[in-house]
């Protein structure tokens, strides 16, 4: 029985919806602040207790034939109220803004901390990017090495002064801390057949006291290119190209040098950027800045790595990115690169 009593007719429902709409629209138009508008939204459209939502609960009770008409009317009424609410909310907000004191737009924005790569990493990344264009990939190797990889395989005679306890840091286990990244030449050639074109950035160690220009640990970038027909011409061409890209339109020169693991060996200089080659204090009046050591890989090194030294030739170089970073950022004391003063690092990261 209660069933029939509470079942509304279509006309009744349409009437109720129209009534609610008539009541709501002037109230919305009169609302003066966002809180009032929110109260009205809940009153008419609230999901659980809203008046219009209450009507929607009755839609299901209508005869099936009446439901589309009632549903359409419901949707229209809800949309109308929602539209009026949004419209009024925008108007209220605009009035508020007009009334509020103006923003002082000269005040600072809300910043976040700036991070940054280490200056030496920046140099490594730039060097690597140039060599990647020339087909080089990046190889890595261990920092603790055997004497064989660090010296013997690289053609150091057994009585070479570098093997001495005075110059090299040894570990209790008998290994040593590699004095250069060159052992990775041998490791790479043992593992991969030519052609090999790799760049090897990494830490190296010397038994040096820590002062303004020496550190017991330093970063080195090694390069290696081995194949049939790779010659001193390729060495000069590739490294000159690198210098032009990295240092701008700089002139280079190659002068004789000596390393046990290369022959012929050379040092590559680029024209001093401070004096343009005229000679200044920075370049010790030479007009040149020393950049890297290089040379044709010694046949004994290739043989150590199991490579046919008659068939294959190649070249290698080694450079110190810390020196380049020092020059680029005018860092007078190499210890700054290790101290990790956040003020220094943050200033260089910009």
């Amino acid at each position: 029985m209660t069933d029939t009593v509470n079942r509304p007719s279509l006309a009744e429902l349409l009437d109720r919806m129209a009534g609610l709409e008539r009541e709501a629209l002037p109230a919305i138009a009169a609302a003066a602040d966002p809180e009032e508008l929110e109260r009205l939204r809940i009153r008419y459209l609230g999901r659980t207790a809203g008046l219009l939502s209450g009507v929607s609960g009755s839609l299901g009770l209508l005869p099936a034939g009446d439901r589309p008409a009632a549903g359409a009317a419901f949707a229209r009424a809800t949309a109308a109220i929602r539209a009026r609410l949004d419209e009024r909310a925008a108007a209220v907000a605009a009035t508020r803004r007009a009334a509020a004191p103006p923003l002082d737009l000269t005040m600072p924005g809300r910043a976040v901390w700036q991070g940054g790569r280490h200056p030496v990493t920046v140099v490594i990344d730039e060097v690597a990017a140039i060599f990647r264009e020339l087909g080089f990939t990046i190889a890595l190797g261990p920092e603790a090495e055997s004497e064989w990889y660090n010296f013997t395989a690289l053609n150091f005679p057994p009585d070479h002064p570098a093997l001495d306890l005075h110059d090299t840091l040894y570990l209790e286990s008998g290994a040593l801390l590699r004095t250069h990244t060159s052992p990775v030449q041998v490791r790479t050639l043992q593992a991969y057949p030519p052609p090999v074109r790799v760049l090897v950035p990494g830490n190296a160690y010397r038994r040096d006291f820590f002062d303004a220009s020496h550190a017991p640990m330093f970063v080195q970038i090694e390069g290696l290119a081995i194949d049939e027909g790779v010659s001193f011409v390729d060495l000069k061409a590739t490294l000159t190209h690198f210098a032009r890209r990295f240092f701008g339109a700089a002139r280079t020169r190659f002068r004789p040098s000596f390393f046990p693991f290369t022959e012929p060996s050379a040092e590559m200089d680029v024209e001093c950027r401070i004096c343009g080659g005229a000679g200044c204090r920075t370049c010790k009046l030479t007009g040149w800045t020393e950049i890297l050591g290089c040379g044709m890989v010694h046949p004994a090194v290739l043989r150590s790595a199991g490579v046919d030294a008659e068939r294959y030739t190649g070249w290698a170089f080694g450079m110190g990115p810390a020196r380049v970073a020092q020059q680029r950022y005018d860092i007078p004391d190499i210890r700054e690169l290790y101290d990790s003063d956040v003020r220094v690092l943050a200033a260089l990261a910009r």
């Binding site: 090999v196 074109r197 011409v233 061409a237 190659f254």
Partner: peptide, 21 residues
């Protein structure tokens, strides 16, 4: 050493992949 030219010549790609690190 300055008598050796410095022209870039063609090269073959290497066999070594980038270290994953």
């Amino acid at each position: 050493y300055d008598s050796v030219p410095d022209e870039l010549r063609p090269y073959r790609l290497g066999t070594v992949p980038d270290d994953p690190l």
